[in-house]
């Protein structure tokens, strides 16, 4: 990620320390993860200690300090999905792609995350791949669903 883009994002927020989280969210959404150089640049421009930025980027779930896979798999583990068997779905997804929530596989193909609620509880359990919803997903259907992603 180049310095100009980072500076542009910081300038969009008037270089205010109060906008730190908004700036980091914009960088994350632009680049899909937060490289260390970006954090150092933000720290320098906003005059916020790196130790604080480090805490913020690990405290809030939206941030990633490592590159993400080509496909982002989200399994909803909200309460409604939980009582409808989300754990079994998650277990099966983990078995199929071989990574745990929060991880990315070595080929950078899949990243797996759990989400607390997607607000489509009527469809539970729900798995979302790259923004596409797979509602009422059964463990038996996961393999063929994930096969469609290269």
């Amino acid at each position: 990620m180049n310095v100009e883009t980072i500076d542009q994002i910081i300038d969009n927020h008037q270089c205010e320390a109060g906008s730190l989280i908004q700036i980091l969210l914009d960088i994350q959404s632009e680049n899909h993860w937060l490289p260390k150089e970006a954090l150092e640049r933000v720290s320098e421009k906003l005059r916020v200690p790196l130790s604080q930025i480090q805490h913020i980027t690990t405290f809030y779930k939206s941030f990633s300090l490592v590159p993400k896979g080509r496909h982002e798999v989200h399994v909803c583990v909200g309460t409604a999905c939980h009582v409808r068997g989300a754990q079994r779905v998650l277990d099966t997804v983990q078995d199929q792609i071989g990574i745990k929530p929060g991880e990315t596989d070595v080929d950078l193909k899949f990243s797996l995350e759990t989400v607390n609620c997607l607000g489509c509880c009527a469809l539970g359990p729900v798995m979302v791949v790259d923004g596409e919803y797979h509602g009422n997903i059964a463990p038996a259907r996961i393999e063929e669903t994930l096969k469609n992603y290269e």
């Binding site: 205010e16 320390a17 109060g18 906008s19 730190l20 989280i21 908004q22 980091l24 969210l25 916020v48 604080q52 805490h55 913020i56 405290f59 809030y60 779930k61 939206s62 941030f63 607390n116």
Partner: peptide, 20 residues
């Protein structure tokens, strides 16, 4: 940015200030 505890009003305020 994704923290349930920020629904608590004092945590929300800290988050608005750009903090943890």
């Amino acid at each position: 940015a994704g923290a349930f505890v920020c629904g608590e009003e004092t945590a929300l305020i800290k988050s608005l200030e750009g903090k943890v």
